[in-house]
Nucleic acid binder design. Structure first.
Lengths: 339, 339
DNA sequence: TTTATTTTTGAATACGTATGCAAAAATTGA
DNA sequence: TCAATTTTTGCATACGTATTCAAAAATAAA
């Protein structure tokens, strides 16, 4: 409850001796207001502690200046970095962030309703998907959406993703070119486009070297999952000499399993991750990994979203961004003449 | 821009053959509306895809149903866990989250303005402080605030903190009781109440054992900082046999430095952290650490905030929550008869 | 059936702001 | 100085909803 009555533009108007509409103009850009009057108004506002009410403004302009960020897996270190970057870039552009922590692979109806209810101007959805009915709901309510790091092949939603297929393929080639022969894959959940594309690229690379199959275990994109997946894989086949993990945090789990088993990295077994989170550079891991260019992906996502919001583009589009390999200490060069 | 005209309660009213106020009543609890009419209205709303407008509602009720969360150090794994918990508990209570990523030790004027502008009902400020002028600004605008994990001794702001002094003291006793004699401390920024209290508690414990001083280096609450601080400490005094790090992530950095130097943990040097983030349990670290009860702290913070919001309490209060030690593998029992 | 009481409902209004429109004021040019 | 033109400003209004108040409708009791 208010201890003090809320200060409004009407109060400022009275003190400054002008109208409420003049006060509004003093706080707007591109408004016609004399500098003398503007100065008086701003001084009165300062004295009264006036703060324009974004809710009232949003009602009349239909511009909430709010972007919704729907995020999953906030405890995967990749996503705090993504959130950090999204926040700072949106703040630069004058947007506020409504944060929605999601739990499911597909954004839920109530999450959609919340975003609509608050008239967010756009939404970034990270690591989750939209059904066609939620796409329609957003569209009908004039809310632009961009998927981050995931996409759906239904031509309904814009997305910015790392080129996961090319990355998986490049990693496959890299490991084989470094002399590995018995490769395995630790995936994420198999219903995610990130895992499917990384695995397919990896498969294609191996096929090009005459390797028609490889073992896969689901590491659930988590430390514990990677740990368990490594254990399963090594029980299935002790000849495995390289692991490609579909994300870094499951790679860390796999590495810790290997270390616990006395299997030396990279002497006995090489491992590659995906994401290049800060921890990949920590000396306990020194993980060779695929760098996802978060800054570029975030910038592209926001540019795409703002183009949709401003009506500059209408048709959905998927932008693929290329990452690059970061070689650290977790891959051995097994070719003859190297050690 | 809207492709379709926004559906409002007026549209639903026309389709259902009732008034706009009846539509509003159908979507409210504790309103007088016949069940027959309510059913008709809800069906019409479903058919039209009507979504009540929270912005309009907020304007008239002066209840935005938004809580601001101002967070720093989102990339410290402690804070994503905190955010996760805050989000789910607030969502259960029907609140939306406006997220503000902060960079400074003290919340900034523009951050305060953003929260006021959007009429957030309350704000949780994690790992940052308020000046007395920002406290006044919040108060004048009817916004309740609770500090999380930090507090100011000015009696102006409510806070929920771990009892850092008691924890630091307990850790000091623990290390000494385990036979360590040359202890050092890796702090966070010295202007943070968390570091000051943890250090003071540690100091008191050591004083009670006749140890009047110990070396300190600032680990900046970061991995890199912990790594560098460990290096500096070990250069200053090679006899150090235990490190108390003011948070886990700087402990991980310190541990990686020690490993790189071939200093075995805990055989050669014991280390204790603070927070008990998930990585503390990873087999590469197995860090003995002080567990901060995030669930309890978050629940208490939200309870306290809601009591302020509802006017049930007015005076600021500081609630201290106790954590507990989690013993893993990074502390050696150095007493005679143990090995 | 009529009167009294209770419940439901719609009309009117307010919330605080932005903006269209026209009047007032200021400026410019003859 | 006056007329023409431009700029500034205030009035009125709308944005979409919740709620007060009073009328209408429904229900209960005589």
């Amino acid at each position: 409850m208010l201890k003090n009555k809320k200060v409004t533009a009407m109060d400022v108007a009275r003190l400054a001796g002008v109208s409420q509409s003049s006060v509004s103009r003093a706080f707007s850009e591109n408004s016609s207001i004399s500098s003398k009057k503007k100065k008086l108004i701003l001084e009165a506002a300062e004295q009264l502690g006036y703060q324009p009410n974004a809710i009232a403004r949003g009602l009349i302009t239909n511009q909430s200046r709010i972007i919704g960020i729907v995020m999953r897996n906030i405890q995967n270190p990749f996503y705090p970095e993504v959130l950090d970057k999204f926040y700072s870039t949106l703040a630069e552009k004058g947007y506020k962030v409504m944060f929605i922590n999601s739990q499911n692979n597909e954004i839920q109806e109530d999450e959609v309703s919340h975003l609509i209810e608050y008239s967010v101007e756009g939404a970034i959805i990270t690591d989750a998907l939209l059904t066609s009915s939620t796409v329609q709901k957003f569209t009908r309510n004039g809310i632009s959406v961009v998927l981050f790091n995931r996409y759906v092949n239904d031509s309904l939603s814009s997305a910015v993703v790392c080129d996961n297929f090319a990355a998986g393929k490049r990693i496959g080639h890299y490991l084989i070119e470094k002399g590995h022969e018995n490769l395995a894959f630790i995936s994420g959940p198999m219903n995610t486009s990130t895992t499917v594309d990384r695995k397919n690229g990896f498969r294609e690379a191996l096929a090009e070297h005459g390797i028609s199959s490889f073992l896969t275990e689901n590491g659930l994109y988590s430390y514990e999952g990677g740990f368990a997946a490594a254990e399963k894989l090594l029980k299935r086949d002790k000849r495995i000499d390289a692991l490609f993990c579909a994300n870094d945090i499951s790679a860390f789990g796999a590495m810790d399993y290997l270390k616990k088993q006395g299997i030396r990295i990279p002497e006995d077994l090489s491992i590659v991750g995906f994401d290049n989170v800060a921890m990949s550079d920590w000396s306990s891991y020194e993980l060779t990994t695929w760098h996802q260019p978060i800054d570029e992906m975030v910038n592209d996502s926001i540019s795409l979203l703002l183009e949709h919001i401003n009506g500059d583009i209408d048709a959905p589009e998927i932008q693929r961004v290329e990452g690059h390999l970061v070689e650290r200490g977790s891959v051995k060069d097994r070719r003859k003449g190297f050690s």
